[in-house]
Design a protein around this nucleic acid. Structure first.
Length: 465
RNA sequence: GACCCCUUCGUCUAGUGGCCUAGGACGACGGCCUCUCACGCCGUAAACACGGGUUCGAGUCCCGUAGGGGUCGCCA
C-alpha cells in the first residue's frame, strides 16, 4: 500500500509556524516512505475563508519547498459529494435529523457543565419521530455514534489512546443550511483522497475519535493517525503573534532561509541522535514518526538565528547576493551601480560570517554600496579623534602611490604606517574602519580596503580628514 | 468542571532496565585567535517535577500527586 499524506489548512489566515511544521512532517514522511503528499484547502467555512489566505498559504509552502505532489483539492468544491454521503447515512439509519435550536443546545451544554460532565449533545432527536419536528425548522444531520464500549486509536506518536464511547456525542454532519461541517468533510475527503496517514496537530486528537465513528459508519478503512504536539511560545503558553505565530512570509521578510527554517522546525519535536544540521536529503532518509516527541516544545528564536547563520555561511554566494542587492535597493529605492554590486559580491564572503539573517547581512554589506561622505555611527565618530585624523592624513599619502592594490600590499602599507608613527595597528585600523565603513565593526580592514579599490578608498578617507 | 495528552540542563533534545559519573546543540559564562565585530577553536556552570512501588538494578516499567497543554461550536 502506498503511503498518502496530506496537509489540510483552512484558509482563514496565514500559514503559521505550527502549520509549516505539520506540512513538513507530512512531506517528509511521504518522501521517506516513497509515497505521495497532497494538499487540501479546507474552505467549507465560506465566510471566513479568503482567497488572500489561500494564496499566502500556497506561496508559503512553495517558499519552504513543500508544495503538493498533485493539484490542491478545494474542499468546498466537493459539497455535493459530502451531501451524498450524509444522505446515504440517513438512508441507512446511521444518521438522523435533529431539530434542536441553538438556544436549546446552549442550555444543554450549560446544564451538563453544571452537573460536572463533558458538554455533549444528549441525543434527544436520535429516536424521536420526525413528525414531532417543529414546523418550519430546518434540521441538522447528526451521526448515530455508539452508546457503549470504547474506541481505541493506535496513534503513531501518542501511542494507544482510549476513549469511552459515551464521551463521543452524535455530532453534526450537515448544518441546517445543508453545508457539511469540518468533521464530516475531513472524513469524506480523506477517504476519497485515499489518505493512509493523517499527520496533524495534537489539538485534533479528540476529534479523531469522532472521525473514527464516521469512517466506521461508512465501512471505510480508518487511516493511521499521528498527532504531533503543538508548538508553544518561549513562555510555555500558546504561541502568540509576539513570538512565533507569524506567517512564514514574515520569517522570509526577517531574512531567514527556507532550508534553515525547515531544519529548525524538524528539530523542534524530533531528533536523530546528536545531529543538528540536517540536509533535506538526510531528513528524508531519517525521518520517522516514532522519533517525534510527545510533549509540546517551545519556539526558540535564538536557536533559529544560530541555524540560519550556519546556513547563510554554507550557502552559495551567487544564491544570496541577489537577495542582498534586492533588499538594499528596496531600502534606498535606488538601483545599485555596477561598481557597488561588484563590491558587494566580492565582499560577501567576508560579511557572511557576521550575520544571522539576510537583514543583518544587508546591514553589514550596505557600506560597500554607500557613497562618501558616509553616515557614521556614534562609535565610529568617537574613533575619529584629532590624532586619528592626523594618522589618516598620513595614511592617505602613503596610499597615493600603490602599484598593486591588493590585500597583502595594503596590509604592509598600513602596518608600516603604524610602526612609523609608533602606534599599535589598532590605532590606525580603527579610524580607518570608521572612515571606510562608517562603523566600528566590519570585515577585516585590509579586505575592505582591497575591495573598495583605490579611488573609492581614498575618497572615503579624504572625506573624514 | 469533564474527558484526553504531556513532564530529562533556561531552551531543543539523546536515552527503549545495567554502556548514565545522564551525552549533544542553542543560549550563558571564561579563554584562545585577532585590526574591530563576528566566525572558528578550547573549557565551565547547568536537568531526570515530586512521592510510592516492581526489580539484584529505574531517567527508562506501574500507581499516585503536583504542574502544564489540548478538547468540549450548525469554526476548522
Amino acid at each position: 500500500m502506498t503511503v498518502v499524506t496530506r496537509f489540510a489548512p483552512s484558509p482563514t489566515g496565514f500559514l503559521h509556524i505550527g502549520g509549516a511544521r505539520t506540512a513538513l512532517f507530512n512531506w517528509l514522511f511521504a518522501r521517506h516512505m516513497g509515497g505521495k503528499y497532497l494538499l487540501r484547502i479546507e474552505d467549507t467555512d465560506r465566510v471566513r475563508s479568503t482567497g488572500e489566505a489561500t494564496q499566502a498559504i500556497l506561496s508559503g509552502l512553495n517558499w519552504l519547498g513543500l508544495s503538493s505532489d498533485e493539484t490542491p483539492v478545494y474542499q468546498h468544491s466537493r459539497l455535493d459529494r459530502h451531501r451524498d454521503v450524509a444522505r446515504e447515512l440517513l438512508a441507512q439509519g446511521r444518521a438522523y435529523h435533529c431539530y434542536c435550536s441553538p438556544d436549546e443546545l446552549q442550555e444543554m451544554r450549560t446544564e451538563a457543565r453544571k452537573l460536572g460532565r463533558t458538554a455533549l449533545y444528549d441525543g434527544r432527536w436520535r429516536d424521536r419521530d420526525p413528525s414531532e419536528a417543529p414546523a418550519g425548522a430546518d434540521p441538522v444531520v447528526r451521526l448515530k455514534t455508539p452508546l457503549e464500549g470504547e474506541t481505541v486509536i493506535e496513534d503513531l506518536v501518542q501511542g494507544p489512546v482510549t476513549v469511552q464511547n459515551n464521551q463521543i456525542d452524535d455530532f453534526i454532519l450537515l448544518r441546517a443550511n445543508g453545508t457539511p461541517t469540518y468533521m464530516h468533510s475531513v472524513v469524506v475527503d480523506d477517504h476519497d483522497m485515499t489518505i493512509t496517514h493523517v499527520i496533524r496537530g495534537d489539538d485534533h486528537l479528540n476529534n479523531a475519535f469522532r472521525q473514527v465513528q464516521l469512517f466506521e459508519a461508512m465501512d471505510w478503512a480508518v487511516p493511521t493517525f499521528a498527532h504531533i504536539p503543538l508548538i508553544h511560545g518561549p513562555d510555555g503558553a500558546k504561541l502568540s503573534k509576539r513570538h512565533g505565530a507569524l506567517g512564514v512570509e514574515a520569517y522570509r521578510e526577517m531574512g531567514y532561509l527556507p532550508d534553515a527554517l525547515c531544519n529548525y522546525l524538524l528539530r523542534l519535536g524530533w531528533g536523530h541522535g546528536d545531529d543538528e544540521v540536517i540536509s533535506r536529503d538526510q531528513a528524508i532518509g531519517w525521518f520517522d514518526l516514532d522519533g517525534v516527541g510527545r510533549a509540546a516544545s517551545r519556539f526558540d528564536m535564538t536557536k533559529l538565528d544560530n541555524l540560519n547563520g550556519h546556513y547563510l555561511r554554507e550557502s552559495q554566494d551567487d544564491g544570496i547576493v541577489d537577495l542582498i542587492i534586492e533588499r538594499l535597493e528596496g531600502r534606498s529605492g535606488l538601483n545599485l551601480s555596477e561598481q557597488a554590486r561588484g563590491r558587494i559580491e566580492r565582499g560577501l564572503p567576508g560579511v557572511k560570517a557576521r550575520a544571522k539573517t539576510l537583514v543583518e547581512l544587508a546591514d553589514s554589506a550596505a557600506f560597500y554600496a554607500a557613497t562618501p561622505p558616509l553616515a557614521m555611527t556614534a562609535k565610529a565618530t568617537a574613533l575619529l579623534t584629532d590624532e586619528a585624523r592626523d594618522l589618516m592624513r598620513g595614511l592617505l599619502k602613503a596610499l597615493t602611490e600603490v602599484d598593486t592594490w591588493s590585500e597583502g600590499v595594503l596590509e604592509a602599507i598600513v602596518r608600516v604606517h603604524a610602526e612609523k608613527n609608533d602606534v599599535k595597528l589598532g590605532a590606525v585600523a580603527q579610524p580607518l574602519r570608521a572612515a571606510l565603513t562608517g562603523s566600528n565593526a566590519s570585515p577585516g580592514i585590509f579586505e575592505v580596503l582591497a575591495i573598495l579599490g583605490p579611488d573609492e578608498a581614498r575618497a572615503r578617507i579624504k572625506a573624514i580628514c
